Amino acid sequence: MLTPLKNRPWPLALAALLLSGSAVMAQEAPAATAKTGGFDTQLLLFWFLLSTLVLVLLVFVLVIALLVVKMKPLLRKVYELPTVHNTWSGQVLGLLIGDARLVRGEVKDELLDHDYDGIHEFDNDLPPWWKYGFYLTIVFALVYVGYYHVLQSGPLQGAEYEYEMAQAALMVSPDADDPNKLTTYQVLTTPADLSSGKTLYATNCAPCHGGAAEGKVGPNLTDEYWLHGGEVNHVYKTIKFGVTSKGMVAWKGKLSGKQILQVSSYILSLQGSKPANAKEPQGEKEAAKSVASR
């Protein structure tokens, strides 16, 4: 028969309530997992066990803290005993009652016979926390050198860099939406495609490049000079992904892939048309190619 909670010490009663709540959650976890269906059962179980462990640790720390608070007068009397006060275990006990001598060290009001321009030097050791930290760095350095350079069990910076670059390369999308991968389209030459490209150009491109592609804010598209390549796949890439640094918007998501190819093909069909008021050449010159050969 369980002891009523009201007859238990309240820290233990609190721990019992929390643990009983964890047991109830453990019983309900399979049903909840079955309802969701989309969650990984093992992952859900892992997080449940981890949260339960953290909860138990918090309860344990809380109980210890409450016991220390309750027993602080007795612990102080033990700490003040001459046989305990100056021992290492006594200093650990001092931390529990508020004496940080173990970490801070003892301050000696003893002056050395050194005198530098009126500045006197005290005979004080380095704080223990500083010395412990320094010792820890020495241990870390020895372990690091042994693990990476002597045993060669771990990868060095160069190997880690090469591995991360290889992983990054695997994450690059291989499809047509990858801006680093050039497409392999051919120029469309049918009158229907060029007519559709002309309509799309007049609606979306003419405000910046001019009605005859002579160039306004954007460059002239009828000469042999190109800023980002004049082959159909380079033009397709420029239209699809844009050049935000130069004000060229990306038409991906606004035009379909076929529409972008139609516009690209129409632009290339204007090569050598020499419209009036054409903008001066920009970019690098590329050899002229007929639409039929593209």
Rank of each mutant, 00 (worst) to 15 (best):
N7E: 15
E106V: 13
A13Y: 12
L270F: 06
S153H: 09
L268E: 03
T52M: 08
A65I: 02
D115I: 09
A32Q: 14
P174W: 01
A278T: 05
P219K: 11
N7Q: 11
L19R: 10
N204G: 00
S245F: 12
T83S: 13
F122Q: 07
V249P: 14
L58N: 05
E162H: 08
G90N: 05
Y225A: 02
P4D: 04
E162C: 00
L200H: 05
V145I: 15
V84A: 06
E80C: 04
N220I: 07
L81W: 12
G218W: 04
H85Y: 15
V263Q: 01
P219R: 04
N124S: 01
S293L: 06
V235D: 03
K289F: 05
A202F: 03
L268P: 04
P179T: 00
L95Y: 07
Y225K: 02
K131I: 15
G37C: 03
S269D: 02
P191M: 14
Q259H: 10
V59M: 14
N7S: 14
M25I: 12
L112S: 15
W88F: 15
P82N: 06
K198I: 00
A32Y: 13
L142H: 02
M25N: 07
V54Y: 09
R101V: 10
S173C: 03
V61E: 11
G247S: 03
V150G: 01
L102V: 07
G197K: 03
G272Y: 09
G257I: 04
D115K: 13
L75V: 11
D117R: 14
L126D: 03
A176Y: 08
D125I: 00
K77S: 13
H85Q: 14
P73R: 06
Y163A: 14
Q167H: 06
V143K: 01
P4Y: 07
A34V: 09
S20N: 14
L12G: 11
L255S: 08
M25E: 13
L67D: 11
A15S: 12
R104V: 11
G242A: 06
L43T: 15
A32S: 11
Q186E: 13
L19P: 03
H149D: 14
F39M: 11
A292N: 01
W226V: 03
P155C: 08
D40F: 04
H149W: 15
K181S: 09
E28M: 10
F122T: 10
S153L: 15
L270E: 03
G118Q: 08
K181V: 13
S256P: 05
A206V: 10
M248I: 09
N7K: 12
E28I: 11
D109N: 15
D177G: 07
A213F: 10
F122S: 04
E160Y: 03
L81G: 04
L66N: 10
I260N: 02
V103G: 00
K279A: 06
P4Q: 02
K72M: 10
G158P: 01
L53F: 14
V263N: 09
P127G: 02
E214R: 07
E121V: 15
P82E: 03
E280H: 05
Q157V: 12
A31E: 10
W10P: 12
V78Q: 10
D123M: 05
P4F: 10
L81C: 01
L136N: 05
L12T: 03
L67H: 12
L55N: 13
L14C: 06
D99P: 02
T244L: 08
A166Q: 14
G218R: 06
P155W: 13
E164P: 00
H234G: 02
D123S: 12
